[in-house]
Design a protein around this nucleic acid. Structure first.
Length: 571
RNA sequence: GCCCCCGUAGCUCAGCGGAUAGAGCACCGGCCUCCGGAGCCGGGUGCGCAGGUUCGAGUCCUGCCGGGGGCGCCA
């Protein structure tokens, strides 16, 4: 089905186009009507004519009577009030449509780089936003028909592995495995670090081990794989707990690009982009300067001939476009990396790996702050572990459920509390404009009131509860939507808005736009619920209202699922 | 020093160049014998400051102020 917005836009665009081909009607949801078209004023300016006059002329070309009533207002706004028949028809189609009006896009291959934890380290809040935002974007793109290639750019390479492997050797494989498998990765890392700081001999072994690892020594590789595999098991557990779609197949760590790094250097060198500077091979993309105002390098190959993360990122980008054929590249990485990605993209363009046809975007996000408005840390100053955060949230959700006495078995409650906890954490993360920092406040995000995950989940559960009570006495077939009450109409218009919310979230890589929509919808439902009795209403009205409940519940559930949040039937 | 991001109501945040800038939380007063109180209604001199572009600026541009971050061999 064509969305309400799309149909209105099509008619308006035709009328505007009759005056100036391609003119944008600038159609928006309106406070003064249902929708408004703002394009007249711009057009009048362009034509050097009076806006009201232009509005009249546009109206002359506008064939929209079957959809909406149009009025010119103010300096030249076109206010549209939708016909009841049109709203009813659209709603009828929604009721039959599993996609709730969201059309499939022309399929694109989209590579989304997100999460990126480090081997032999526990996941902490620093990984939360990348994981949650990336997962939401992946779900959104998949839903509209794109081929998403998720890439978990795990930190599985580099100098720390010398010390980690030597520590593994010192512990003995059995003990090391035992230590790693209980998930105490940080403990393992700390011990390795301590040995490194304490012993000159250990440092020397570590250094040699790095050389062996990079040189492809079989035994060293085997030991390295133990670390990697144990970490992978741990990551999978965390993703399960979080309800994130990432799998083992999505992991393409830094080490995977080793064999490609030589080609990267060769390519850049052939393009004349590499300059030796202080012994390192550097690219100097135009427009970047350092403290002293000198050109800022992107170090491709270090003085010691090793490669840094710039080389890996370049190799990954080159491969994603060249071999994977990506039409779109999204990097869900924190805002502090902005300059790094600007430089990588600039070099990739200069090298001819990236052209205008490929959309390439650093989907940057702000930091998570504590109550003191500084980067969230534990009292001891260490990073807050993701698993601990989830446990704390789950415990609070469990306590809230006990208090609400929703007649749940212990088993149901335990399961639900995790669903609520991750919904709360994800919603808090996704519902603000992602570039901003946000303050992490478990109490607020777990509240059943306000702009929270639990509120949305609860709204859905209540809708399902109403529908359950009517189960045997109602069918969603052939419902006539009269929409007599204003609250019914407001809700209906809200329900018709999902396609634009989804499109907007995808277009701007801003999941929060979908959140804003869903919260608004839930509030419209509350107003409707307050004003319009459902189960007690006389027959035709009852069916209509039940249908509104049904579509509302489906919309909330679908919208939440696109954000990676479950919508339980009861809570 | 240069660059990037942020600055909207007491607090947390929406706001796609358009009309009178909205919501949630908190606070005060009223209401609801109803489908699981996700209650409902009323109560507010808020876009950091100063210029500019525009028919129209919270939104775009410039400068300043405040906060955060980045700036050569960690990733």
């Amino acid at each position: 089905m064509a969305s309400t917005y799309a149909q209105l836009h099509e008619r308006l665009a035709a009328a505007f186009g009759a005056l100036v081909p391609g003119a944008d009607p600038a159609l928006r949801v309106s406070d003064h009507a249902d929708y408004q078209a703002n394009g007249v004023m711009g057009l009048a300016k362009q034509l050097g004519r009076n806006p009201r006059e232009v509005a009249t002329e546009v109206l002359g070309h506008l064939d929209i009577d079957d959809l909406a009533e149009v009025q010119v207002a103010g300096p030249g706004f076109l206010n549209l009030r939708l016909r009841a028949t049109f709203v009813a028809a659209q709603l009828g189609q929604l009721a039959e449509d599993e996609r709730l009006g969201v059309a499939r896009d022309v399929p694109r291959r989209v590579v989304i780089d997100y999460s990126a934890p480090n081997v032999a380290k526990e996941m902490h809040v620093g990984h939360l936003r990348s994981t949650v935002i990336g997962d939401a974007l992946a779900r959104l793109h998949r839903f509209v028909g794109h081929e998403v290639i998720a890439r978990n750019h795990v930190g599985d390479w580099g100098t720390p592995f010398g010390m980690l492997i030597e520590h593994l050797v010192d512990l003995g494989e059995d003990r090391a495995l035992a230590s790693l498998s209980i998930g105490d990765l940080d403990g393992f890392y700390r011990e390795a670090r301590a040995a490194f700081d304490r012993s000159e001999e250990f440092r020397e072994r570590s250094r040699l081990r790095v050389v062996a690892l990079q040189g492809g020594d079989e035994e060293t590789r085997r030991l390295w794989r133990i670390l990697v595999e144990q970490s992978m098991l741990y990551f999978s557990q965390v993703y399960d707990l979080l309800g994130v779609t990432l799998t083992r197949e999505d992991v393409v760590g830094e080490s995977a690009y080793n064999e490609l790094l030589g080609d990267v250097v060769a390519d850049l060198s052939a393009a004349g982009l590499l300059v030796e500077s202080d012994g390192a091979l550097c690219a100097f993309p135009a427009g970047f300067v350092n403290r002293e105002g000198e050109p800022l390098p992107l170090i491709v190959q270090k003085r010691d001939e090793g490669y840094g993360y710039a080389a890996t990122d370049l190799a990954a980008l080159r491969q994603r476009v060249g071999e994977l054929g990506a039409a779109e590249l999204l990097y869900v990485v924190g805002a502090p990396q902005a300059q790094h990605f600007d430089m990588v993209f600039a070099v990739a363009r200069a090298a001819g790996w990236l052209d205008e046809d490929v959309r390439c975007e650093h989907v940057a996000f702000g930091s998570i702050l504590g109550a003191d408005r500084k980067m969230l840390r534990t009292r001891a100053g260490s990073s807050v572990k993701l698993v601990g955060l989830l446990q704390e949230a789950t415990a609070r959700a469990d306590a809230a459920l006990r208090e609400r006495d929703a007649q749940l078995s212990d088993e149901q409650r335990v399961e639900l509390s995790l669903v609520i906890a991750r919904g709360a954490i994800k919603w808090a993360d996704l519902s603000t404009e992602r570039q901003r920092d946000y303050v992490f406040d478990l109490e607020r995000m777990l509240s059943f009131e306000g702009d929270t995950g639990p509120y949305l989940q609860y709204a859905h559960a209540r809708q399902r509860s109403i529908l359950r009570r009517a189960e045997d006495s109602w069918s969603s077939q052939d419902v006539a939507f009269a929409l007599v009450e204003p609250a019914e109409r407001d809700l209906a218009l809200g329900l018709l808005g999902l396609p634009e919310a989804v499109a907007s979230a995808i277009g701007a890589s801003q999941p929060h736009r979908l959140c804003t929509y869903l919260f608004d919808l839930a509030q419209r439902f509350t107003a409707f619920y307050e004003a319009c009795p459902v189960l007690g209403a006389p027959a035709p009205t009852r069916d209509e209202r039940l249908a509104l409940c049904e579509i509302s519940a489906c919309t909330l559930a679908l919208g939440l699922s696109l954000l990676g949040i479950e919508a339980p039937e009861r809570m």
